Amino acid sequence: MEDVQTFLYFAYGSNLLKERLQLKNPSATVHCVARLKDYKLVFGNHKGFASDRWRGGVATIEHSQGDEVWGVVWRMNMSDQESLDSQENVMVGAYSPVELLVKTKGQELSCRTYIMNSCVYAPPSPQYLQVIMMGAEQNSLPEDYREKLRAIKTNMYEGPLPMMAELERERRRAKEREDCQ
């Protein structure tokens, strides 16, 4: 029997990385790796306003016949949905939550995900792309998809990003917890 207190969330950007998602959504647990058919991963900014958090374009998906986006399906408590919406700037209209079907081994799953509104294409910062790559590695997304991610051109931003320091602290804490077990 499915637990009605949880939902499935398909992550394809920085939330591929467990430590990133769990900063504000502690209930998130990996359900499976999946692919979204007929969509492609793109980077941009809502109405052209650059992300202060990431200093460059951020990930979104758009319909594209024949393409596919790989990601992670997370099972999350309903109590984290508001926090996830907040992280995705739903209230200010940057992203809209949608329900999409993703394919996994032998089945289709209906998952919540987010699509940017009024996207103006812009390259991601190297740091943002690094977080996506770390999540793709952590969850063993297909190697050919990781190769596509590695080929994405960045905006070459070299300044500091407080989010990167926060993620590093969280990754160290997670490693220490693992080592203690």
Score class of each variant (00 low, 15 high):
151 A>E: 02
8 L>A: 05
124 P>A: 01
158 E>R: 05
107 Q>M: 11
106 G>K: 12
84 L>Q: 04
22 Q>S: 07
27 S>D: 10
24 K>D: 10
169 R>W: 13
48 G>T: 09
127 Q>D: 02
87 Q>E: 10
106 G>Q: 08
175 K>M: 12
5 Q>H: 08
21 L>H: 06
139 N>E: 13
145 Y>R: 02
145 Y>T: 02
180 C>A: 13
46 H>W: 15
35 R>F: 12
40 K>R: 15
157 Y>C: 00
47 K>G: 09
71 G>R: 07
122 A>R: 13
170 E>V: 10
87 Q>C: 04
122 A>V: 07
153 K>P: 07
69 V>K: 11
67 D>Q: 13
98 V>E: 14
100 L>H: 06
98 V>D: 09
176 E>Q: 15
142 P>L: 14
120 V>S: 04
81 Q>A: 04
48 G>I: 07
48 G>Y: 10
37 K>N: 14
48 G>A: 07
133 M>T: 04
173 R>N: 15
173 R>C: 14
40 K>F: 11
33 V>K: 15
19 E>G: 01
103 K>F: 00
60 T>P: 03
67 D>F: 04
100 L>K: 10
111 C>Y: 07
12 Y>S: 02
83 S>I: 11
150 R>P: 00
153 K>Y: 09
44 G>T: 10
43 F>K: 03
94 A>T: 01
85 D>V: 07
146 R>S: 14
34 A>W: 00
23 L>H: 01
165 A>L: 06
59 A>G: 01
94 A>G: 06
49 F>I: 08
126 P>H: 12
73 V>S: 00
5 Q>C: 10
168 E>Q: 15
87 Q>F: 00
2 E>I: 13
14 S>N: 04
171 R>F: 09
136 A>T: 05
163 M>G: 02
79 S>P: 06
72 V>N: 03
9 Y>C: 05
123 P>Y: 06
82 E>Y: 02
147 E>D: 04
88 E>Q: 13
101 L>Y: 08
64 S>Q: 02
25 N>L: 03
112 R>T: 15
36 L>R: 02
